[in-house]
Design a binder for these strands. Structure first.
Length: 829
DNA sequence: TAACTGGAACCAAAC
DNA sequence: TAGTTTGGTTCCAGT
């Protein structure tokens, strides 16, 4: 017998909503979690809830295939079996923030417009069902059937439509900007703004800014976000139980309507008008044109020279996908998305005024390879690729870089290029005959001019020195029950600047991640741009960012080269450590050329640490998508924070279950029952030893953790004020309070596969005495355990208390200081 | 010929 | 404020 919760997952809700629109400019403090403050969730502070827009979610027990275009929501729903109707009260209008009210200190202030767009897009992309008819944006902000405004916008015109300057190349550059171009690059996109003209305005960028005039549209977007989150609660195989929380994406960060634009249409391609498209659908699959009608944007065209036809992919539509700045897990259940071959650490991006600089390559001269493991179906899937950030913040689309589709004889991989909000997304087939493996020889990187992006309304990121990116891969796996599992993996960072790539030393690997405080071990650094006079400097910073310790490591020049440095690890200044301390080190070549900071952990005697920090920040920025000390997350990539139980129980034995925590912003801790039981669907099935990072177990079996250790993460006591998971983490650093039976953390983030991502930004609100006195300089993340650190008795940790150490740090400092990473160390005391 | 690649000139911002 | 440094952008030339 299915539980009510399970039932909820299987329902495809249709939504209708209304909004009071009397207060377009909203106070920032309401931004965020209030999305979850529906009628079911009174404000924690007791503030009486005002009249709020409501979402009525009608769940149906089946998924009508082809009534997607019933955007009015009034179509044939009457004929459907209505299982339940839930009314969700949206946050009051003041829960929404007009861009004019943006606060630089807000969680989104540092986000790029891309991010905003993508966040916004989440409001348009979270119908998590196969059936597009359930798309939330069918409602108010979406044109009725057949009336979806589609505008032809070329790739170039999109670029050109960016708000400001056009290329001023004396010779006009190699690319021309034509706002009206609709030639072969003719694009179609959906405008969700009801006020938008379907025709492309010369200055109408897909990255539209919100003004008072456009607030209505944004209100709808916001509503979409809320709806989306609600749908997530119903449609993912996550924990979404309306009884536990209203799944609302409580953060509105997009300033413009989300657009899904298909780019780079092939010459032979066929475009359908929305009506035509629907007509096609009405004739059923057999009538479908050989493009992936039901995929991203629903009107992609296949690359002609390849046998693969996009129509063969399992259907999903862009509108049903999570926003690009959503943090998704790398694995879920049996599925695991992995980068088999990482891209090179350097790839010079090309400007629009330049010709392509080719595809991103791997170190050996080949190309990156991505593979989906655990997928045994015969249906092809679509791998999505976009360019993401590589800094210390949440992984999100990079504002200054876009993926560039490479075509030509040398490219073996067929691709689609689509525009998801303002972010180009490359779609690559994952074919069972290729073992769900894709060679990424089709993706270059385009650099957008800083001035163009920075001057864009709402943009807060700066481009200068913001030249590192990651390739972000996503795959969406439809389940037989109608759910979709989405996985994401990000590559190692790629330096895209010519100058930096040529000049700055870069550390690719370090042979040793930690050692005892006395130092003395030798560490081999491999990378690039090392010089004979390169120095390796270990530094430690205090909580206020002030450097409190610096020690230059001795470099064995005889054993070093331009790509490697052999150094003696200097002793830590305090030989009486009681807990691991993570410091930074960097390679310094010359006066100003420093590498990114790397992390190194000094260990006290007899302290067992668990890896919490990957080598490079790219893993750090696999937000909520990676391993948490080797623990995999449940197959709930679309958890909405509000509906996720804060309690995660992790049994470190293989094949144990475990529930996830919110991965999205906007979590509402108060709505989390502290001891809610995990959803059956949230069970983690695979925790086999191979899924534990070697640094955690150092090749040993996870059983070394003990036969039955568990990790329980509990919600912080009063994190309501935080605007989401992310901000919650700022307020409530995780604390693991564990006994022999397991680990216990007060942070919900630990429940994520990659919890440290957000915890990196934590400011300690509840420092323990130990934290403050014993370890004022809490570990900064890396914390890759050395073998010796794991267990003094042969790998079996003593059943002692486990604590997570964390360094208090100002958020903005975290943002501003390169090389800052999350600061978690699990130590077995 | 087009795509790709490496280098460098030029310029502006930052220092 | 002027000089220097640094980094972004554009252009050129070779493969």
């Amino acid at each position: 017998m299915k539980s009510a919760e399970e039932d909820a997952y299987c329902y495809a809700p249709s939504l209708s909503f209304s909004l009071p629109l009397d207060d377009p400019c909203l106070s920032p403090e309401h931004h965020g979690t209030q999305a979850s403050r529906g009628r079911y969730y009174p404000r924690p502070n007791g503030t009486p809830a005002l009249e709020r827009p409501r979402i009525e979610i009608t769940s149906y027990g089946h998924f009508p295939e082809e009534d997607a275009e019933d955007s009015s929501g009034t179509g044939n729903t009457a004929a459907k079996q209505v299982n339940s109707i839930v009314t969700l009260t949206l946050p009051n209008a003041d829960g929404y923030r007009d861009p004019s009210c943006l606060s630089p200190a807000s969680s989104m202030s540092s986000r790029s417009c891309h991010s905003e767009a993508s966040s916004h897009e989440s409001g348009l992309s979270c119908n998590y069902e196969n059936s597009p008819q359930n798309s939330p944006w069918q409602s108010p902000c979406v044109s009725p059937k057949g009336g979806s405004p589609r505008t032809s916008v070329s790739d170039e015109s999109w670029i050109g439509s960016r708000p400001l300057s056009q290329p001023s190349s004396p010779c006009g550059g190699k690319r021309k900007y034509s706002f009206s171009e609709t030639g072969s690059g003719c694009l179609k996109y959906h405008l969700y703004s009801p006020s938008h003209s379907p025709g492309p305005s010369p200055r109408t960028s897909p990255r539209l800014s919100v003004t008072d005039d456009t607030w209505m549209a944004n209100t709808n977007q916001y509503t979409n976000s809320a709806i989306v989150a609600a749908i997530n609660a119903l449609s993912t195989d996550g924990v979404s139980d309306l009884g536990e929380g209203v799944p609302l994406k409580a953060r509105k960060t997009c300033l413009e309507p989300c657009l899904s634009i298909n780019l780079k249409m092939e010459p032979r391609g066929v475009e359908l008008s929305p009506a035509e498209f629907e007509d096609q659908e009405e004739f059923g699959p057999s009538s479908r044109l050989p493009f992936k009608k039901d995929t991203y944007g629903r009107s992609f065209l296949d690359v002609p020279q390849h046998a693969f036809t996009w129509a063969s992919s399992k259907p999903y539509m862009s509108a049903s996908l999570p926003a690009l700045d959503w943090q998704l897990p790398t694995r879920s259940g049996l599925y695991s998305l992995q980068i088999e071959v990482q891209p090179k650490s350097h790839h010079r991006a090309h400007y629009e005024t330049e010709g392509s600089r080719g595809a991103v390559k791997a170190l050996a001269g080949n190309h990156p390879v991505v593979q989906l493991h655990g997928y045994t179906e015969s249906d092809p899937l679509t791998l999505q690729l976009f360019i993401g950030t590589a800094d210390d913040r949440l992984l999100r689309p990079h504002a200054f870089y876009q993926v560039h589709r490479i075509t030509g004889k040398t490219v073996s991989t067929p691709t689609h290029e689509v525009l998801h909000c303002s972010t180009k997304v490359l779609e690559i087939p994952l074919l069972p005959e290729n073992n769900m493996r894709a060679v990424i020889d089709c993706a270059g990187i385009l650099k957008l001019r800083n001035s163009d992006i920075e001057l864009r309304k709402g943009e807060t990121d700066i481009g200068r020195k913001n030249t590192r990116v990651r390739m972000v891969f996503r795959v969406h796996i439809n389940q037989p029950n109608g759910r979709t599992i989405s996985l994401q993996v990000a590559s190692s960072p790629i330096e895209c600047s010519q100058r930096s790539a040529q000049e700055l030393p870069l550390v690719d690997k370090q042979s040793v991640e930690s050692c005892c405080a006395s130092g003395g071990e030798r560490m081999l650094l491999t990378g690039h741009n090392f010089h004979p006079d390169s120095r390796v400097v270990f530094v430690e910073k205090a909580q206020d960012g002030c450097q409190v310790w610096e020690k230059e490591a001795k470099v064995d020049k005889a054993a070093s080269s331009s790509t490697s440095l052999l150094v003696d690890i200097p002793p830590y200044h305090n030989q009486k450590l009681s807990c691991p301390v993570v410091v930074n080190f960097f390679v310094c070549s010359g006066k100003h050329r420093r590498s990114q900071c790397q992390h190194f952990t000094y260990l006290p005697p007899n302290v067992l640490t668990i890896k919490t920090e990957p080598h490079d920040d790219y893993e750090v920025h696999r937000p909520c998508s990676q391993n948490v000390s080797g623990l995999t997350l449940p197959s709930n990539p679309y958890y909405s924070p509000e509906v996720l139980p804060p309690v995660v129980s992790v049994d470190l034995r293989p094949n144990v279950s475990f529930t996830a925590c919110p991965q999205r912003l906007g979590g509402k801790p108060s709505s989390f029952p502290l001891s809610s039981s995990p959803s059956p669907s949230a069970k983690l099935q695979d925790l086999s030893p191979t899924h534990f990072p070697k640094s955690l177990y150092n090749g040993s079996s996870p059983h070394q953790m003990g036969p039955h250790q568990s990790l329980v993460v509990q919600q912080g006591p009063d994190a309501q004020s935080a605007s989401g998971c992310f901000q919650q983490s700022l307020l409530y650093p995780p604390r693991i309070i564990a006994g022999p039976a397991g680990l216990h953390s007060t942070s919900p983030n630990i429940t994520e596969e990659h919890p440290f991502h957000s915890t990196h930004h934590i400011a300690p609100s509840q420092p323990t005495t130990e934290d403050t006195n014993q370890c004022p300089q809490l570990p900064k993340g890396t914390g890759k355990s050395s073998p010796s650190s794991f267990s003094p008795d042969g790998g079996k940790p003593s059943p002692a208390a486990v604590s997570i150490k964390q360094e208090p740090q100002e958020l903005d400092q975290v943002y501003l200081d390169d090389g800052k990473y999350r600061k978690w160390i699990y130590s077995f005391m």
